[in-house]
């Protein structure tokens, strides 16, 4: 005897995740446009590693492989992690990070749907703590007109660790916009001096600001197609903007504009793609807002006062811990029981 309902909307986890992957494409395209195709190499590497790790873990956990490997969640983790690692990183960095994200932070916690922490951010956190040096060599955008490697030379570095003889790694890479800002502020420069440096564009870092816009476009697509709810990105960006705004108003020479914070680092990809991971975010509308506001404030505090250049990953992970508590305290009133006590 079957139980009703007998019909269902044609939707599936794999479809939802595929839409999210599609929404990443504008950002990735702009990434390639401004920084060259090396990012595609790390995305491919991460994807292969993720699928292989997923298959091995499913096998070890005696779970059916086909329905889970085709759910596209491992791919999404891989893409998000690859996008937060410098493209010109040695191949094993991507592989180690992805494998850790899938095997430990996803499957050891019970697999799809049971992991308390965002796997991609766990992967990122492990890498930035274990290999901080490798994680700071970011490619310089084409716009700066510096020395650039050809694609073959990039591949040669990623897989063999060999650079052309006349170049050092420092010559072809640079720190991120946020990192540079932090270092220069420490050195005593004012915000206006720093912003005049060539690596900065109109909003934030040259090139990276455009990539952030690409992610925002993809994110808006997700909101309009109701793949994600608006609560998380809107609350996150608003909290980040407000916190940055307060500090900026108090001392504009020491604290950059809120817009700079929006368009630098992982703020945009985080707001639309990382916080919105349904498994690790709250389920109630109120809870989502609390979660995202917390993450926004933490991101700012870590960026400005913490030891790491960007705070998105740690802010997400810290708020992930709070999710069960947030959910428990934000249970909405049910139908007919809103006028409690009456």
């Amino acid at each position: 005897m079957l139980s009703s309902p007998f019909i269902a909307q044609p939707s599936s986890v794999s479809q939802i995740m595929l839409r999210v992957l599609l929404a990443l494409i504008p950002g990735i395209a702009l990434y390639v446009w401004y920084f060259g195709p090396a990012i595609l190499v790390s995305i491919t590497l991460a994807s292969i590693t993720a699928l292989a790790t997923e298959a091995v873990m499913l096998k070890l956990r005696s779970r059916p492989i086909k329905p889970f490997i085709s759910d596209n969640t491992a791919l999404l983790t891989a893409w998000l992690l690859a996008l937060s690692i410098p493209p010109l990183a040695p191949w094993w960095l991507v592989v180690v990070g992805t494998a850790f994200a899938i095997a430990v932070s996803k499957h050891l916690y019970g697999g799809l749907g049971s992991n308390p922490f965002n796997p991609a951010m766990i992967g990122y956190a492990v890498l930035i703590i274990s290999f901080p040096v490798h994680m700071t060599h970011w490619l310089t955008p084409h716009a700066l007109g510096g020395v650039e490697l050809s694609f073959v030379e990039q591949l040669n570095y990623i897989f063999n660790g060999v650079l052309p003889s006349h170049l050092t790694l420092d010559a072809i890479t640079m720190a991120t916009a946020l990192d540079t800002l932090k270092t220069q502020l420490h050195l005593g420069l004012s915000v206006s001096d720093i912003r005049d440096m060539p690596i900065y564009g109109r909003l934030a870092g040259k090139g990276s600001e455009m990539v952030a816009i690409g992610f925002a476009i993809g994110g808006l697509y997700l909101i309009f197609t109701r793949i994600i709810s608006w609560h998380l990105p809107v609350a996150y960006l608003a909290a980040l903007f407000a916190t940055a705004g307060v500090f900026h108003l108090v001392d504009p020479q020491h604290y950059v504009t809120p817009l700079f914070h929006w368009f630098s680092g992982a703020a945009m990809i985080g707001a639309f793609f990382i916080l919105t991971d349904p498994v690790t975010s709250p389920t109630t509308a109120k809870g989502k807002i609390i979660f995202a506001v917390g993450a926004g404030i933490l991101t700012y505090l870590i960026r400005v006062f913490g030891g790491f250049p960007d705070g998105m990953a740690f802010a997400t992970l810290l708020m992930n811990i709070c999710v069960p508590l947030i959910d428990a305290y934000t249970q909405p009133k049910v139908f007919g029981k809103k006028g409690a006590g009456k």
Partner: peptide, 14 residues
């Protein structure tokens, strides 16, 4: 009584 739904593929556990 209604039975606990049995989801076959997830319960393949060895």
């Amino acid at each position: 009584k209604w039975r606990h739904p049995v989801i076959i593929p997830i319960k393949v556990a060895a």
